[in-house]
Computed example of a mutant assay.
Amino acid sequence: MTRHVTFMTIDDAGHYTPEQRAAIVAAYPAHEREARAKGIPVLGSGRIFPIAEELIACQPFRLPRYWPRLGALDFGWDHPSAAVELAWDTEADVVYVAKACRASQQTPAMQALTLKPWGEWLPWAWPRDGRRETLDGAGVALAKQYAAHGLNMLSRHAQFADGSVSVEAGLMEMLDRMQSGRFKVFSTLLPWFEEFRLYHRKDGQVVKLRDDLMAATRYGVMMLREAVVDPAEFRAGRKRSAGQSDPLAAFR
């Protein structure tokens, strides 16, 4: 028997006006609001990111092309492979999760077909298990398989500048950014928020279940220093004469 969990929040109750929804939520005790209004359960020994969604969610917008960007992958088969694209507003030091996708039982070739339209120039962060050989890849490491299908994979697996790969350090970097307003997620990325709501610990340990987009995001945050600007921005800048108008001026 196949089972599926669908999350609905009070915002999906279209028969209420925004004012009525706000009044209903305000009537709940503060510590019950996310569970009652958004269906977010309290799991294990606690959520990894105890942050209200409205503090990190933002409406999608056209990304300024001069913002550095980075893709990040989490490999999988029966549990999904996942990918996100991060955009970095370096002036305000705010990271935006602008794209996200997740799929099970997809080969590197199939994943590449989905991800290459994000930009063939886009660099991709990847985890340590990308060095492993796989049977379907005839002994070729996963990261090399993705590279062979046209993704611009970084030369080394995701790690901090000092070479460390601490999961906890990556999670704390994400949490610190969330708490300080320096981490935002496009509100349309529903699978990302599904994982965000359920990401939790049990007996102090991270529960590695339905955490694929969370893991990909963590790898991207760890490797944010490798984010680059779309090369087309530089080409456009060189071709534009001093007297020409700049079609991207509104986004600068």
Results as ranks from 00 to 15, higher is better:
A30S: 10
R33L: 04
L86C: 11
A23P: 06
G170A: 05
V140W: 06
G220D: 03
E173T: 06
M214F: 08
L248E: 14
L115M: 04
R132L: 15
P68T: 04
A52Q: 13
K202F: 10
W124N: 03
A141E: 05
Q20W: 06
R252C: 14
P68I: 00
E54N: 09
D176G: 14
T217W: 04
T2C: 11
H4G: 09
T134Y: 08
D74K: 00
M110H: 11
R177K: 13
D78T: 11
D136S: 15
R252V: 07
A98M: 12
A169Y: 08
K184L: 13
G220T: 06
T188E: 09
H15L: 06
R201A: 00
T6W: 15
G130K: 01
K184S: 12
L55W: 08
A35Q: 13
L224F: 08
L175Y: 09
L86R: 04
A125E: 03
G170L: 05
D230A: 01
F61R: 10
R156D: 14
P50M: 02
A141G: 05
A82G: 09
G220I: 05
E19W: 07
H200V: 03
R62F: 05
I10N: 05
E32S: 15
D129E: 13
M110T: 13
T17Q: 03
R197H: 08
P117Y: 07
L63Q: 13
L154P: 01
V97I: 10
L151M: 11
L70A: 07
Y219Q: 13
Y16F: 14
H79V: 05
